[in-house]
């Protein structure tokens, strides 16, 4: 293949990957009133407006809450689950692994519909609780898989050594296993956080009056108001994700775990 063709393919790939991101950043910088690209003039007013929209503030808080606590809950379930799958010769362990991975494979729109029809409506649970449960379930596969892969690298005889030196099984877990899979847990947290924060399809079904996650709120905002503030907000969220992953990579070599 010629040099020129190589460069063209590289350029096309980068355009598709980074292009939309750049368009959104610049669309948000527009001085005009409607969402458009290229932007009509330049100003920061839409970036400023984002922070004044009441519903954005509320939905950002909800999304943050779901991303942080949903992921923590997923880890609380996922770490012991990964440990059990890894250390004990459970009957049907393969099946359990497949089921745990299901939320990644099953389309979110089906998960959302099923939860709405058979969980929220019949049990009359609040939307916030339903969202919390959903996000926990959606993040769980990441927690189990990432923690599993760091457990794989940890020899089981290390725990036996700890027990012989006087640890109970639980102490062996907290004093030897946990410190050695700390990196994997942090990686799982970041991955889960980002996945939860960006989740759309399932959350689409689980919105109520004044209770929406940020991406859903942005969708409905756009249906009514077609100004560049949504582009500005999208750019800000993209920067937040990039910053988190960048920090994670610098601090703990994130890419080792995913």
């Amino acid at each position: 293949m010629s040099r020129l063709a190589t460069w063209l393919i590289l350029a096309a790939t980068l355009t598709f990957l980074i292009g939309p991101f750049l368009i959104v950043i610049f669309a948000g910088l527009s001085a005009g009133e409607a969402l458009a690209f290229p932007p009509q003039g330049l100003s920061l007013k839409w970036y400023a407006k984002v922070f004044t929209v009441e519903s954005f503030r509320a939905s950002f808080a909800l999304s943050m809450f779901l991303a942080v606590f949903g992921t923590l809950a997923a880890l609380l379930i996922g770490i012991p689950a990964a440990y059990a799958l890894n250390r004990y010769d459970l009957p049907g362990a393969e099946t359990i692994r497949t089921i745990v991975a299901a939320p990644i494979i099953v389309p979110g729109i089906i998960v959302g519909l099923a939860l709405l029809r058979y969980f929220v409506v019949p049990l009359n649970v609040t939307i916030t609780l339903a969202l919390f449960v959903t996000h926990t379930a959606l993040v769980l596969p990441y927690a189990v898989r990432v923690v599993s892969s760091s457990l794989n690298n940890l020899r089981a005889d290390m725990e036996e050594a700890a027990v012989i030196l006087g640890c109970t099984r639980l102490q062996a877990f907290t004093k030897v296993v946990l410190p050695n899979i700390r990196g994997g847990i942090l990686a799982a947290f970041i991955l889960g956080f980002v996945a939860s924060f960006n989740e759309v399809p399932a959350s689409l079904f689980l919105s109520g009056p004044g209770v929406r996650t940020l991406p859903i709120d942005m969708l409905s905002y756009m249906e009514i108001t077609f100004d560049p503030s949504v582009a500005a907000l999208s750019a800000l969220l993209a920067f937040m994700s990039v910053a988190i992953v960048f920090l994670a990579e610098r601090l703990l070599g994130f890419s080792r775990y995913v």
């Binding site: 020899r155 005889d157 290390m158 036996e160 050594a161 700890a162 027990v163 012989i164 030196l165 006087g166 640890c167 109970t168 004093k175 030897v176 410190p179 050695n180």
Partner: peptide, 27 residues
Amino acid sequence: ANKRGIGLVFQSYALFPHLSAFENVAF
């Protein structure tokens, strides 16, 4: 096992990688 007062040196040594040599011995 944790109340038996037995020592065991594993074939793989099973040292604790997150602790210093001193802390391994002091564990």
